[in-house]
Write a protein that binds this DNA or RNA. Structure first.
Lengths: 200, 200
DNA sequence: AAAGATATGTCAACATGACTGACATAAAAT
DNA sequence: ATTTTATGTCAGTCATGTTGACATATCTTT
């Protein structure tokens, strides 16, 4: 008696329903249960708190562009490429690989698409003609702005809410979270804009 | 004349080599080029800076556990489950789904493994016997500690380096980065520890 | 008590974005 | 002239996410 009536009334609670309701309704459920008095393990370590906050913050932070990307049939991988090429025009493939921390085969897949669809332009290096210096086309720049806008707004809002010293403290903390060896490099990287020194 | 000599001398620069050298040597290369004087687009927006820092910080932040996980043939998905079950013992499957923002089919795959290998224990709810309240076994708690230790150290170090007000400011900023609708929920969630109110 | 809704689980097929390994070409460096 | 470097590409695999369909046990409602 439990085998034929299902499909009609259950479907609506199936997959994405759980996802979409998740960030709202179901989260409420979580919270309410949470409100119940706990017993033990109230490990109220602020460190653990920060770790969880990082998880949620990053999740939401990346969700903005994800939605936009879907329109273009692109994924996060494309976004990362667009972002770093946009912020560091003239970057080489090797540099991009180093920054992204992925293999060239992985990069190739998305980069190829981006070049074919003319979001990214490859210019042969003049100093070293083996290099392919990467730039955004106008189209690419447009997409970049579209993608970064919600993120900038989100960050801006958050920093404002957190107070005037937040910009500085937040930046300092993030930098200190990065692997020691890379901190100096990243500092230079984010401090500057382009990757020039040569161009075609 | 370029078709038979390859495999011997190239292999070492192949895949992971690029990855491993990446975070050190190649990053250096990036930095040096960066140092070259730029021309235009010095969009020195601190917002963009923060966005990139977030990317790097989160990347390194998650790399600690990733390495450990490999020993167990687990991935990030397992880590997330272990983390949230560990920090919120007695959490239900539905709640976990809401937090993780994935489908139950995705969760099932990793949860099944974790239960089979006895890192996670399912207890039937007493108030609602349909629920499976999730807990870590001792084994699971050990793994949880092993995984969170490097992250806690990293965060701790970063907060110290960033100054005394960093804990508070960093937490505030992260919270404000989260989707408005979820902020209150997450605050409760991270503030408390367990998910009890009932147990078996 | 019967009917419906909910919490959980499971099979199967598919997409994305990583990875490894192997091989290629053009250009620079030795 | 030889070797190394920067880039690209084919092929196969793996982890993790997604839909869709269906099952079972246990509340909840009528």
């Amino acid at each position: 008696m439990t085998d034929i009536k299902l499909a009609e009334k259950q479907v609506f609670v199936q997959n994405s329903a759980l996802r979409d309701a998740a960030k709202t309704a179901l989260m409420e459920a979580v919270a309410s249960k949470m409100a119940a008095p706990n017993k033990k393990e109230a490990q109220h370590d602020p460190l653990n708190e920060v770790i969880e906050l990082l998880f949620f913050a990053y999740r939401d932070f990346t969700s903005d562009p994800d939605a936009i990307l879907a329109d273009y049939d692109f994924g996060r991988a494309h976004h990362r490429v667009i972002h770093f090429v946009g912020r560091h025009p003239g970057i080489t493939v090797a540099q991009l690989l180093a920054i992204l921390g992925i293999t060239k085969q992985s990069l190739a897949r998305v980069l190829k698409q981006l070049v074919e669809e003319e979001y990214v332009i490859q210019k042969t290096g003049t100093r070293d003609r083996r290099q392919r210096l990467l730039h955004l086309s106008n189209k690419g720049e447009q997409l970049e702005r579209r993608l970064s806008e919600p993120q900038r707004k989100r960050v801006s809002k958050a920093l404002n809410q957190a107070g005037p010293e937040a910009i500085d403290t937040f930046r300092k903390t993030l930098l200190a979270l990065i692997n020691q060896e890379d901190q100096a490099t990243v500092e230079k990287l984010t401090g500057k804009g382009s990757t020039k020194g040569e161009t075609s």
